[in-house]
């Protein structure tokens, strides 16, 4: 029997818009098993990315509860959430979100430094090498291609060996060849580290590579 690592119960999200409150998500209940991979798909505006942000504690649900590794995210304040993410969650974004003023190596080492790990740089170097960028450690993001930047972002996400890997359309800004390479890398890393992967994607063929596909429509599970 596999353990549930991520559990959402009747989750809803309402945000304030210019024209009044906008209901982004409603009545989402979902359990994700440890070590599995889940593809979140659906049309634009269906709430995929918002759901991913709720799972990462980067956004707060306005209704329902979210349990990750047995912890209720709704009961935590901003700092508790930040501490909780340390070493437990890795997040990859469509726009990479690397710190432009830091080198690739520093970017990868940053989460380990935040955790207070003494060997942050040695581990970061190894992780960069694992994504094929061992020779680019001292380059700044602006000196790298989009594909390379996303590989750095992947290395940064997995360097702490997180139990949960959240990826928000990680190939959205890349061409087909780079996109495919990144996905291979992502699934490879997930498999190697035994992490649970939640992947937001538009592409059915990428979703199909996941153990399970969850479809969203108009902010609800389809």
């Amino acid at each position: 029997m596999t353990d549930t690592i991520l559990s959402l119960s009747d989750v809803g999200l309402t945000l304030d818009g210019n024209a009044g409150p906008v209901e982004i998500l409603q009545g989402i209940s979902l359990d994700i098993e440890q070590g599995s991979s889940v593809g979140l798909t659906g049309p634009s505006g269906s709430g995929k990315s918002s759901l991913l942000m709720l799972m990462g504690g980067l956004e707060r649900a306005t209704r329902g509860s979210i349990q990750v590794l047995g912890q209720d995210l709704g009961a935590m304040d901003e700092d508790q959430l930040a501490r909780f993410r340390r070493g437990r969650m890795g997040i990859v974004f469509q726009s990479f979100h690397l710190v432009p003023t830091m080198t690739a190596l520093e970017n990868v080492a940053l989460p380990l430094e935040i955790m207070g790990e003494a060997d942050a740089f040695a581990r970061a170097e190894a992780e960069l090498a694992a994504v094929g960028l061992g020779h680019r450690g001292h380059h700044y993001p602006s000196e790298m291609s989009g594909g390379e930047q996303q590989r750095v972002a992947l290395a940064r996400a997995v360097v702490t060996r997180p139990a949960v890997l959240l990826a928000d359309e990680p190939t959205g800004n890349l061409d087909a060849a780079n996109g495919a390479a990144i996905m291979d890398l992502l699934f490879g890393l997930q498999e190697r580290h035994g992490a649970t992967l939640v992947l937001v994607t538009h592409a059915p063929e990428l979703a199909a590579r996941c153990d399970r596909v969850v479809q969203l429509s108009d902010g609800a599970l389809a």
Partner: peptide, 16 residues
Amino acid sequence: NWEAAMLKTLGATRAT
């Protein structure tokens, strides 16, 4: 704004 969001994502507290 972006920097703070990014650092929070990576686990940094507001104090840091």
